[in-house]
Design a protein around this nucleic acid. Structure first.
Lengths: 208, 208
DNA sequence: CTCGGCATGCTTACGTCGTAAACACGGCGC
DNA sequence: GCGCCGTGTTTACGACGTAAGCATGCCGAG
């Protein structure tokens, strides 16, 4: 019979299918049954390759991290760092439904550790002492993941402005939000992200 | 009979009970049935006050936001901003299991809008132009929520170091993480958080 | 005072979820 | 040629969110 021979299941194939599925349908729609049927297989078959759903989610953040484009070493520390966080934010754009997982379940894999090592190396070679390198890493990472999440899910404590139009709020009660009505209509998120990155990087340069 | 008269249910009472429950048992443990029994009531009774579970979660972030301690106006903009974000981070410490909701489901309530208005006012009166005030607000908020989440859930791409002890990693493969072994054992998170805040605030002062 | 409606809570029920357990089967090593 | 092991299936259980309909007590209108 001309039945297409199914490629065998594997952890990697399952994780990639899960990422594709969540990209398409959203995180809440993901269930073992639906993921199974996405792969032409019953839900329980997945358990031969993944111990439970939590591990599946962890695996998905591994996949994301694997897609992170690590910039080459030869560019000077500042440019390298900047490019790394741009790439990080790009992940959020490419997988907006999966990205929150990355923030909420930090990966504990060799790949993740390698990224940290690489980052620290760059800063140490730039001349930062170990402690400052660590602080810098965490400050930048906090900022970047906070920004990326906010960009995806709506800015925390954002003026309803950006959603409903700041103009709909009473000018008397909310004059400062109101004056941002126009700017809020089309914020340049790239510029906004770079603004914060600039601030932090400039501050770091002064501690060199 | 000496049956204790139950206080009547209300949206507020439900939300507060939900926050207490999640503080104690974790977010995943929260279900309508359990929350009901926490209040001495069946699950379906909750639906008289809250349209569905999603709205319940939204209400919980309202409760958190209501606990945010907004610093007084008379302190000078820099100090006021700093204190506000310290208070924000304090929320994360007081409700580590609820806080991620705040980051992932931005509130769209009048209270939230009022906070933004207040923040923008402070920056505008300090002399920032509207656009910069907005960028500043978002840079600081991104940093603070990113840091707070990382502090709660483990730092994203943290060297397994902080969890397993950096010393357990091969010194040859991960020299830079290894050299942070000692510092990582007891990071001063307060100082670390202030480091990033300083960086951003210093940068902002230069644009005044 | 009575009556009727409405707000509040309860009961039952449906479909979906994660996953434990037992089973079927096919290929590979002895 | 036989048994084992890795892969996938079947069935089943308890918990979940919530729709629908029912019970009950309070409050205002007559």
């Amino acid at each position: 019979m001309a039945v297409v021979k199914r490629r065998p299941l594997s952890r990697q194939r399952i994780l990639e299918a899960a990422v594709r599925f969540v990209d398409r349908e959203g995180l809440e729609a993901l269930s073992m049954r639906k993921l199974g049927s996405e792969l032409g297989v019953e839900a329980m078959s997945l358990y031969n390759h993944v111990p439970n759903k939590d591990a599946l989610l962890d695996g998905m953040v591994e996949v994301l991290l694997g897609e992170l484009e690590v910039p080459p070493e030869d560019e000077g520390w500042e440019r390298r760092v900047r490019e790394a966080y741009r790439a990080f934010r790009r992940l959020a754009h490419e997988h907006p439904n999966v990205f929150p997982l990355l923030v909420v379940r930090p990966p504990d894999t060799m790949d993740g550790i390698w990224l940290v090592e690489e980052f620290l190396k760059t800063l140490r070679e730039a001349g930062f002492d170990p402690q400052t390198a660590l602080y810098a890493f965490r400050a930048l990472s906090s900022y970047a993941s906070g920004y990326a999440i906010a960009e995806i899910r709506g800015f925390a404590m954002e003026p309803a402005g950006a959603r409903a139009g700041a103009g709909t709020l009473s000018e008397d009660d909310f004059p400062h939000i109101h004056e941002l009505d126009a700017p809020l209509r089309d914020v340049d998120h790239d510029a906004e992200f770079e603004f914060g990155l600039d601030l932090i990087l400039a501050g770091l340069k002064e501690r060199l």
